[in-house]
Simulated scan of single mutants.
Amino acid sequence: MASSDLHGGSAPAPDRLVGSDRVLAVLSALAKRPEGATLDELAQAVDSPKSTVHRALASLRRANFAAQLGRGVYVVGDEFLRLALENQSARPEGRAVEPVLSRLSERFGETAHYAVLDGDEVVYRAKVDPASGSVRLTSVVGGRNPAYRTAVGKLLLSTSCGSVDELAAVVGTGPWERRTANTIGTLDALWSELQLTRERGWAVDDQENELGVNCLAVPGHFGPGGAMSGAVSVSALAFRTPLAALVQSVDEIRSIVDARPTGPQ
């Protein structure tokens, strides 16, 4: 039962977007629509009246975080993109990660990723595709996947969850969606996989997130003083680089990741 803002001290409903939260929600919705979005589409996306979304857009446009194209279509502004790209490229881990991913991609002719854990999902912070090859992976920097069905996710969960109860607190108790016949769908099966991952120091995705794509992940020590900050993976098309070939090369993969030049601390 949405109504106009009340005055006189009544708190807004917990699920209503107000003030800066509304502006950030509109910016987030806009960022998910690189082709642009109309006022109607944005109002529907953030479940707010068009008048309030229009005010949020006005604030974003004043900061050059949003821009209006012809026919009432809005897009993310150049200033926001500049700040985001500048921040990403200037991060110490980013400067250290990119050369590593480039070497892995060149060596194996496949895609290399760097990812971190965010709750029960992984977020891809960096990606390097092979220079050649007509078939590429659809992953994108900033993209997310459920941790339970990715190699980087299982590697990171194995280091952050010391018990099955801790694991359940992060990913839930399941069962989870099985994207393929190989996808782990239960908490017990995932915990067993994480124990094995912890013992050997690397994780695999045997076509669990996407048919035809397998992956091997190792720790990425790009934090201050060489602390583990995320996971690095080689994600390969199964017909081109079978999982067994990645497993046979795990020592080489780890040596490439660990031999990175020391970045700013």
Rank of each mutant, 00 (worst) to 15 (best):
A58E: 14
K154P: 02
R178Q: 15
V140A: 07
S89V: 14
V97E: 10
V170Y: 08
N182Y: 09
G8P: 09
A43H: 08
G226W: 11
L157C: 00
P224D: 09
V135H: 14
E93D: 07
T180Y: 05
E193C: 10
G36L: 06
V232D: 01
P264V: 00
L24H: 07
S132I: 15
V232Q: 03
S139K: 12
S10K: 14
P175A: 06
L101I: 07
E106Y: 10
Q265H: 13
P12E: 12
V128I: 13
A189N: 04
L24F: 08
T150K: 03
T38H: 12
S163W: 13
P14G: 07
Y74S: 07
L243K: 07
P12G: 07
G172Q: 04
R62H: 11
S51M: 10
T183A: 11
E93I: 02
H113N: 11
A2M: 12
D206S: 10
V135F: 14
E177T: 04
T52V: 00
G230R: 07
S134R: 13
L81P: 03
Q207L: 11
T159E: 13
K154I: 00
L167K: 06
T186V: 02
D40F: 14
L156E: 01
S3F: 12
A126P: 01
V140N: 06
L85T: 15
N145K: 12
S4C: 00
V75W: 04
V141L: 06
V26G: 02
